[in-house]
Simulated assay, not measured.
Amino acid sequence: MPMAADDIAGMIRAAIPDAEVEITDLAGDGDHYAARVVSESFRGVSRVKQHQAVYAALGGRMGGVLHALQLTTAVPN
């Protein structure tokens, strides 16, 4: 069963409250998304740790309910 973009964004915002989250459905199938997550909490944190924080927010849904997520993280300008 595919995940809705709003559900993905909500889970990320729940775990990273200050996050600005943009979700794009890449294939129109609810299984392949791109996410851009911008958060002050990422400042000074390695890109790997930033991505791990986002994946942790998704509660183990990667590779199961959520098949693919092209992830971009950043700190605010």
Results as ranks from 00 to 15, higher is better:
Ser41Tyr: 06
Val65Arg: 12
Leu26Ile: 06
Gly30Tyr: 02
Ala35Ser: 10
Asp18His: 12
Gly63Ile: 09
Gln52Arg: 04
Gly28Tyr: 12
Phe42Trp: 04
Val38Trp: 01
Gly60Thr: 14
Glu20Trp: 10
Val75Ala: 04
Asp7Arg: 00
Asp25Gly: 01
Tyr55Cys: 00
His32Ile: 09
Ile8Tyr: 00
Arg61Val: 15
Asn77Cys: 11
Gln52Tyr: 00
Arg36Thr: 07
Pro76Tyr: 10
Met1Asp: 07
Asp18Gln: 13
His67Glu: 15
Tyr33Pro: 12
Ala4Cys: 05
Leu58Pro: 02
Gly60Phe: 15
Gly44Ser: 14
Gly10Ala: 08
Gly28Gln: 10
Thr73Lys: 00
Gln70Cys: 11
Gly63Gln: 14
Val21Pro: 03
Gly10Arg: 01
Val37His: 04
Val38Pro: 04
Tyr33Trp: 11
Ile12Gly: 06
Ser41Asp: 14
Glu20Val: 10
Pro17Arg: 14
Leu69His: 09
Glu40Val: 01
Pro17Met: 13
Asp6Arg: 15
Glu22Ser: 12
Val21Ser: 05
Gly10Gln: 03
Ser39Cys: 11
Ala14Tyr: 10
Met62Cys: 08
Arg36Cys: 05
Ser46Pro: 15
Arg61Tyr: 13
Ala34Cys: 08
Val45Asp: 01
Asp6Gln: 15
Asp31His: 01
Tyr55Leu: 08
Phe42Pro: 03
Asp7Trp: 02
His67Asn: 09
Ala56Cys: 11
Asp25Pro: 05
Val54Cys: 02
Asp29His: 05
Ala4Glu: 12
Met62Trp: 06
Gly59Met: 14
Ser41Val: 03
Ala35Met: 11
Ala14Trp: 06
Lys49Glu: 04
Met62Asp: 09
Ala68Leu: 09
Pro2Glu: 10
Ala9Lys: 12
Val75Arg: 09
Asp18Val: 08
Arg43Ser: 02
Ala19Ile: 10
Met3Gln: 06
Gly30Arg: 08
Ala14Asp: 14
Thr24Leu: 05
Ala57Val: 05
Asp6Lys: 13
Ala19Lys: 05
Glu20Phe: 13
Ala4Asn: 11
Ala9Gln: 06
Tyr55Val: 07
Ala34Val: 05
Ala34His: 04
Leu69Arg: 04
Gln50Gly: 07
Ala15His: 01
His67Gln: 14
Val75Ser: 04
Arg43Cys: 01
Ala34Leu: 03
Val45Phe: 00
Asp7Leu: 01
Ser41Lys: 11
Gly30Lys: 13
Val37Ile: 08
Tyr33Leu: 03
Val65Ile: 04
Gln70Leu: 08
Tyr55Ala: 01
